[in-house]
Structure formats: C-alpha cells, structure tokens
C-alpha cells in the first residue's frame, strides 16, 4: 500500500514538474470553457429548460466538465501503448508490480494534480464571469470527491483497455481514435447527455462513459439526490469493477500471447 502511495506521488510530480505546460493548459481550458458556455447558452434564447437543466445548470456543467477534462484525461492517453510498441513494457512486466495497479496509482496521483491545478483555475474564472451554481449542502462536496475519484478509475480502466490494443495491432492509432471519439461523445463532455435525443441518450446511459463526466457533474449540480445519488455512485462503482476486470482479463490474454511468441 505504501508503495502505491509512492507511485501516486510520482504520478503527481511528473506533471507538477512542468508549470509552463500547466499554465498553457489552464489557458486552453478557459478559452474552450467560454466558447462552449456561450454556444450552449444560445440554446436558452427561447427556452428555459432543456433536459431538466436550466441555463445556470448548463453553464455550471460546461465549467465543471472542463475541470474534469484533464482530470479524467479524456483526450487520449497512449503512454502504455507506446511502451508496448517500444518494448519497454518488458521491463515493467519483469518487476513484481502489477501493471494495472501501478498505472491506477500513478493516474490517481496525476489526476489530483490536474484537478487542482488545471481543473479548478478555469472553473474559478468561469465563476467570476458567469453565474454558476455551487452545491448547497456540504455533504455534496464529499460525494463529488467520491464521484470524481470513481470517474478517474473508470477512465483509467478504459484507457488501459484501448492501450492494450498495441499488443495485437501494429497500428493502434485508428483504434485509439475511435475509442476517444466514442468516449468523448457518450461521456457527456461534448454535449450534456440530457440534451441528446432520447434514443441516443438511452444508448449513452447503457455505456460506461457517462460515469466519466455526466455522473460527477450531476452529483455536483445536485441533480441526483437521495436514492438517485446512491444509484449514480453505485453505477460508477459497478463500471469501475467491470472495466478493471475486463482490463485484467485482456492483460492476461496479452501476456499469454507475449510469452508464447517469445516477446
């Protein structure tokens, strides 16, 4: 356990070492936050409610989703795939350290850095310019923390899975692109899921990606309360378990293949 704490710290420090990159990232997230906020606000010209969200909810959604973007690393993480391609993964596997838990610990450390230093600043800027809706009850903040953590876990498991494609495919870029597209769309990052036409929303809710953005935001907006809240968090847990299990299975299959083929 102590070891994984150290790994998490490494994950944190790796990204804390590049403040210039962080500032650039805050800048980018802020600009995109503004753009997205105005676009979606445009929908409220003649309406007051869309999918159960009013204008304030939606703007809050946009800024919170921007904060989550880097935290759950939604735009494509190929570090593991690169290590597989280069063969560096062999040294990783030679160590008595389970790769899945390693990357999970590392990613949680990283996510903390990104949430605090890349996620919160744009949100604060959004708060200054727009009228955002913050949780009323103090307990909600706790649930938000839980939900965001679970979102990172679900996201890491998913990223781990599509990185494993590198064990089988020489060119994993196409697979990664499709994975990112689908996950971005159905996470609710591009457009909140309640805005989707109902048939598309049904599909989206059946997929794990909503657990990466939509659910944490709903918890934050206190859109899900009481039983709904418990249900939402449990759904995240369920997806985390399913995806981690899947990751473990596929990893085992990949290792068997590696051993058989002799590296």
């Amino acid at each position: 356990m102590r070891l994984h704490w150290e790994i998490a710290r490494r994950g944190y420090r790796r990204f804390a070492a590049y403040p210039a990159a962080t500032f650039a990232g805050i800048w980018t997230n802020t600009i995109f936050g503004f753009l997205q906020a105005y676009i979606l606000l445009g929908l409220y010209e003649n309406r007051t409610d869309i999918g159960g969200y009013d204008a304030t909810d939606t703007v809050t959604y946009v800024w919170f989703a921007q904060a989550l973007l880097m935290t759950v690393y939604a735009f494509g993480w190929v570090e593991l795939a690169l290590r597989i391609r280069s063969g560096d993964v062999a040294t990783d596997l030679a160590r008595p350290l389970d790769p899945l838990w390693y990357w999970l610990a590392f990613d949680l450390g990283r996510a903390l850095y990104h949430l605090v230093f890349r996620g919160i600043p744009p949100f604060l800027i959004g708060m200054i310019v727009f009228d955002l809706e913050l949780p009323e009850s103090p307990a909600t903040w706790l649930w938000v923390a839980v939900s965001v953590t679970l979102a990172v876990v679900v996201s890491l498991a998913f990223r781990f899975l599509y990185n494993l494609a590198a064990f089988w495919l020489l060119d994993y870029r196409g697979v990664v692109a499709i994975a990112i597209t689908i996950s971005l769309l159905f996470s609710g990052f591009v457009i909140p899921l309640p805005f989707f036409p109902s048939w598309l929303e049904t599909i989206a809710r059946a997929l794990p990606f909503a657990a990466m953005v939509q659910i944490p935001v709903d918890v934050f907006l206190e859109q899900a309360e009481g039983v709904d809240l418990a249900g939402a968090l449990l759904l995240q847990v369920a997806w985390a378990v399913v995806l981690l299990g899947l990751a473990r299975t596929v990893l085992a299959a990949a290792l068997r293949r590696v051993v058989i083929q002799g590296g």
Partner: peptide, 15 residues
C-alpha cells in the same frame, strides 16, 4: 472531427 458536427446536430435537435 465528425464529433463536432454531431454536437451541432444534437444542438439543433433541441432548438
């Protein structure tokens, strides 16, 4: 890149 246009389509599904 098509993802961005899907966003446009969804937006106009609402207004």
């Amino acid at each position: 890149s098509f993802l961005d246009f899907i966003a446009v389509l969804i937006i106009f599904d609402n207004v």
